[in-house]
Write a protein that binds this DNA or RNA. Structure first.
Lengths: 361, 361
DNA sequence: CTGAAAGCGCTAACAG
DNA sequence: CTGTTAGCGCTTTCAG
């Protein structure tokens, strides 16, 4: 450090402002351009971010507030966002709010507002989103990722969780399952609400009554999956399939399944919202809803960058991405077994050919 | 934003410099202290980090350059470091250098130096560590985590990888294994070198000749574990045990194991450097070397903070932490089986009681 | 203990 | 297109 724009000006016999202008993409005489470039290289000059930020009130820093758990979900999002932002010349300031704890989130948002970032991407739950408004008032754009709240008009990037849950549970139904349990997430989470809604809708569409005994209130953490699964297995009439509302829940389910010695998929089929990078280690391989993580990161970054550049044309924007179901080996195809819906027999035991049930009643 | 120290000065009828002094822990008349506090609260004033940084050349930002892969190793370190630094009032600027790619690391270090951080924690491999010197010259303390290079005198926090590998492989030997394969990391990595050294030492100490056919050159990535395992299984004389040099290598090994239908531990015992948070999902549960991640993060942060405060008393400091072996179910105890080393029979098939071989010849 | 003043490195009018 | 100039908000001498 130590070499400033002043030194470059002296070296080139140009005015400070000319250098500054050039540095910021302004037009300069061709000859001067070369002179400046040379001087910069020679002196090994780099602009001082602080001074720049102080003056222009642009910091080139963006905040990212999200959980950072040991799963592909967290690490992929973080990695992708960091990468994109750096490419665009922004620093990423990372703050971990664990499981989206609202109080932490609020503290961090205020922290970032006070300390000056150009924008932020956050994941959060809960309804009290005053802190989002505070950021807005400080003119700092915020993009909410994953958990989009209807309570606040904000830009957000979310996944069609309802659709994803619907599809993967429809897969169970088409495979002949009726006693389908769900271990859900907490009610403060929009994604959890949506996933549950997906469950309820598909059950309704196929005319399968929802058994409250099969609806477990979880909290997206593995313990709730573990306990939930144990509970389910004590029902007089056990479910033949279970839907785990997220990655961690599924981990817990698997743990219980191993402990209880349940055979998957023979005794129990499992589907999960969130895909496993480690799917290779898990037997049987799980049928799961895979979220478009890269696209989410992409979309959030692009949107935030546009806002930071003052482009608010389409504000507030709600981007909804489609997840993808990946069919693997954790679902037993019971086609051919008796069914109230009168579905015909399966010809083959593949995913595609098992869709014998007509939708609706 | 918008409210500055000037406003506080006006509100209190004090000089700007007095406010500043108070804010920085200087002494002020008791009465004034209260007045200032009140004004700050009333105006909701918060210091502008940029201006502060520009003037004092302290940024309260620290950089963290490390890979961010989907495993407990990465996510735990990141989480712990972020947490500690925030508690101490520092922002964490995170940069992902994937698998410690030296060129990326260099770019990022320079980037941080240019943009002003108070210090940084990095993980990196390779010998060319000029960029560390550059940071030093810019008076920015650097703590290297994990990969400590003898090539440069720097503060570092590392794990006794040699010892960890030694211990877990000794466990194999005591269980009666002789044909022990190792899938190693790349030669640019100090930790990989150490782990290999642990293997070689324990083999030497127990007088077991090293079979070059069982030494696989990997690169800490899962594919090298996968390919390595497949290769090993084609040897005319197959190994009875394999040591995976890190988490990802082990993932690859498991993948191959599943694909080849190898029974663990009956046909092959597996031990791994790095523990699995998901161990619960992996059958059998793996015997592994568990690194003290929290302590690493702790130590790195404490050391860096001391350096940032100008305390260089014990520079350069090399902190070496001890890992812990966790014995689970992936090792077959073959005690009682024929052995060239004349070890006696096992009484029980537990870890503790199986150590029948006398150390050394 | 308090206040006045200088200036950190840079950008953005504005005048030439 | 280039140069002059006035600060951004704060810390830090140095007098008072």
């Amino acid at each position: 450090m130590g070499v400033t724009i002043k030194d470059v000006a002296r070296e080139t016999n140009l005015a400070i402002s000319t250098i500054s202008k050039y540095l910021n993409g302004g037009k300069v005489r061709k000859k001067n351009q070369k002179v400046i470039e040379d001087a910069i290289r020679k002196l090994n000059y780099t602009p001082n971010g602080m001074a720049r930020g102080l003056r222009s009130s642009r910091t080139y820093r963006v905040g990212l507030i999200m959980g950072n758990n040991t799963n592909a979900h967290s690490s992929t999002l973080l990695k992708e966002i960091e990468n994109r932002m750096r490419e665009r010349g922004y620093f990423l300031i990372f703050l971990n709010n664990d499981y989206c704890v609202p109080r932490q989130t609020e503290e961090y948002v205020d922290f970032l507002v006070e300390n000056g970032v150009d924008g932020m991407i956050i994941t959060t739950i809960g309804k009290d989103l005053d802190y989002i408004r505070r950021a807005r008032e400080a003119d700092i754009p915020v993009v909410i990722m994953e958990e989009c709240h209807t309570a606040v008009d904000t830009d957000c990037v979310q996944v069609d969780c309802t659709g994803g849950a619907y599809e993967v549970i429809e897969h169970l139904i088409k495979a002949g399952h009726r006693r389908i349990a769900a271990i859900n997430g907490m009610d403060e989470s929009q994604t959890a609400i949506e996933r549950k809604k997906g469950y309820l809708r598909v059950m309704e569409d196929y005319g399968i009554p929802v058994n409250e005994d099969y609806m477990i209130q979880g909290d997206y953490k593995s313990e709730s999956g573990y306990l939930g699964m144990k509970e389910l297995w004590q029902r007089k009439e056990r479910p033949t399939a279970v839907f785990a509302a997220n990655y961690n829940t599924c981990i817990g389910v698997m743990e219980a399944v191993y402990e209880l010695g349940i055979k998957v998929p023979e005794e129990l089929s499992i589907v999960c919202f969130d895909d496993f990078e480690l799917s290779v280690m898990v037997r049987p391989k799980l049928t799961a809803v895979c979220q478009p993580l890269t696209e989410m990161a992409d979309a959030a970054c692009e949107l935030l960058i546009r806002r930071m550049n003052g482009d608010y044309d389409d504000y507030p924007r709600r981007i909804r991405l489609k997840p993808e179901c990946i069919y693997r080996d954790s679902v037993l195809h019971m086609c051919g077994s008796p069914s109230k819906n009168g579905n015909k027999e399966c010809r083959k035991k593949t995913d595609r050919d098992c869709g014998m049930i007509e939708k609706g009643k």
